[in-house]
Amino acid sequence: MAEYVLETKNLGISFGGLKAAQDVNLKIKKNQIYGLIGPNGAGKTTVFNMLTGVYKPTTGEIYLCGERIDGHGQEEINHKGIARTFQNIRLFNNMSVIRNVLVGLSNQPEYKCGLFTSMFRLPRHFKVEKAMRDRAKELLDIFGLLEERNNLACNLPYGKQRKLEIARALATNPKLLLLDEPAAGMNPQETAELMDTIRFVREHFDMTILLIEHDMSLVAGICEEITVLNFGQTLAHGSVEEVLHNSEVIRAYLGDD
């Protein structure tokens, strides 16, 4: 077993001449909540996209639990154990809440069920379908969405949509959960609730979490370790206290005097 759940070595990508991210080294231990922060355009989401296989990194390596995963497609990386949420919520809007979670569950090996098994309604189909529904209800119950399971996902209030997105990501049974600005557009009370949810996910699912966030109260509240990016490069790295008092970080956020 590798020491780190996620390890990147000199990860970098350039679009033409633009180096969107360079020499990003992340080392995330098991069960850690890790923050990735930085000013706008620093390359945080680009790093996420490289981790989840949307972009193929031009330099460097990514290891998930010691297994090299860079260069694989998005689906494969998800199967290997990285699930993510999006900065602008991406739910399956025209499907019911429970179906959103069921889609997340459908790739688990224990719910394997071939196309013809479903088409001709063989006994295995019903067994798998029932098991999936039970599991989905369990997940929705944890996130307090059980009552609304038959509503369309697009009709949920904003905070619940965020929760549903996390529930769907967890349904894929990941080793590492990536949250892209989970508190964007939330009021302080919702943010506080979200912090509880994230902590709860960590405890209950024994999850390792990497999150991008602009809301410093959330970052300071739950992150154990932080990496700061600026112009695609690592500016600082360390515990919350260290980083937030780092003069370079303050300069990057607030500018020179």
């Binding site: 999006f86 991406r90 769907r168």
Partner: peptide, 15 residues
């Protein structure tokens, strides 16, 4: 139907 609704999310969900 998930692919129809949001292809990017479907990929990220492992479909």
């Amino acid at each position: 139907t998930a692919i129809r609704d949001n292809e990017i999310a479907a990929r990220a969900t492992g479909i």
